[in-house]
């Protein structure tokens, strides 16, 4: 790990200002992803701003009947919250499908959104990777790509976003609240939060440098059946090969977001519209522009079959 200086921030705006004063610095909260990457010298921040003292660890009702989840709410606490379990079951299920009990006790809501890819070439500092070292090339294209993206990828990067939580957040149309170093705040729809790789895969999100997430808000409860179905290589404690987050109404209408297939949680309006027609039509709309490799083409029929299971479980046409 490279040496770094460390400070504790005492307000969100002060944290953003501290990050702006120290170029290349990182915020640290749970640390479960950042410290791992720092040990491998994939991340080499010269300065860390500890945000764990910012008291952003509450879950409150919003004026319009939704929930505001503080950026520092731990994954365990969010999954276990009675309101989340009752009204946003897809989110509880997604959180509980991710990581281990120890990691969920550490990982925060904002940090989960900011997880970096688990592409094996991103982790292997001996190999070219445009996400880790811009312009060095992509080793995954033509390499070992079984776990990687089938849609929304580019000639520069076929990494996937590893989060389960973010997939459910996308299905719920969550909003990300932030503060910038000048103290100004803004709200970013989750659909616009993560980026596709394009020619700049080293930039994962649309956050500005030193911009700090303060909360994630959920709209008022949607009703319907909430289902999160994760397919992975072992029964517990593994990243998704693919996952399906769905909220399905009695009439078969609803919304669906796919994890493990793209650089961001993958949701397509035209696919949501096809849900009443069943899994095949929905999957066709989801993957109309897919460019799988020969090693990960299996993900497309796997999503279709998993969607079939999800729709059957919801009591809708599968």
């Amino acid at each position: 790990m490279k040496p770094f200086t460390y400070e504790r921030a005492d307000s969100p705006a002060a944290a953003a200002a501290a990050a702006a004063r120290n170029p290349g610095s990182r915020f640290i909260a749970g640390g479960t992803n950042l410290l791992d990457l720092m040990k491998l010298q994939i991340e080499t921040p010269p300065h860390l701003v500890d945000v764990t003292g910012l008291k952003l660890d509450r879950i409150d009702k919003t004026d319009d009947g939704g929930l505001r989840i503080g950026a520092l709410v731990r994954n365990t606490d969010l999954a276990a919250d009675d309101r989340v379990r009752r009204d946003y079951g897809v989110l509880s299920r997604a959180l509980l499908a991710g990581a281990s009990g120890q990691l969920r006790n550490m990982a925060t809501t904002a940090g989960n959104l900011l997880q970096r890819t688990r592409c094996p070439y991103f982790y292997d500092t001996n190999m070219p990777c445009n996400k880790r070292t811009p312009g060095s090339g992509c080793s995954a294209i033509g390499g070992y790509s079984r776990q990687l993206a089938v849609v929304g990828s580019s000639g520069s990067c076929i990494a996937t976003h590893p989060s389960d939580m973010a997939v459910a957040m996308r299905a719920l149309d969550a909003m990300v609240e932030t503060v910038r170093s000048d103290g100004s705040t803004r709200t970013i729809p989750i659909a616009d939060f993560h980026r596709l790789p394009g020619e700049t895969p080293h930039i994962d999100t649309n956050l500005a440098p030193a911009e700090l997430i303060t909360a994630v808000t959920l709209p008022k409860p949607l009703g319907g059946k909430h289902i999160y179905k994760k397919v992975r290589d072992r029964a517990s404690y593994a990243f998704a090969l693919i996952s399906v987050a769905a909220v399905i109404g009695k009439d078969g209408k609803g919304r669906v977001t796919i994890g493990g297939v793209a650089h961001k949680p993958w949701r397509v309006d035209a696919a949501d519209a096809q849900l009443p027609q069943g899994a095949k039509a929905t999957a066709q709309a989801l993957f109309a522009d897919a460019k799988p490799t020969k090693d990960n083409a299996y993900k497309i029929p796997l999503v279709e079959r998993t969607l079939g299971v999800v729709l059957a479980q919801a009591g809708a046409k599968s």
Binding site: Y6, I28, G31, T32, L35, D36, L48, D50, T52, T76, G101, Q102, L103, N105, M106
Partner: peptide, 13 residues
């Protein structure tokens, strides 16, 4: 009282 991985947190935190 909560279990964590002590390898993934800084002592100073």
């Amino acid at each position: 009282g909560k279990r964590i991985n002590s390898c993934l947190t800084l002592a100073v935190m």
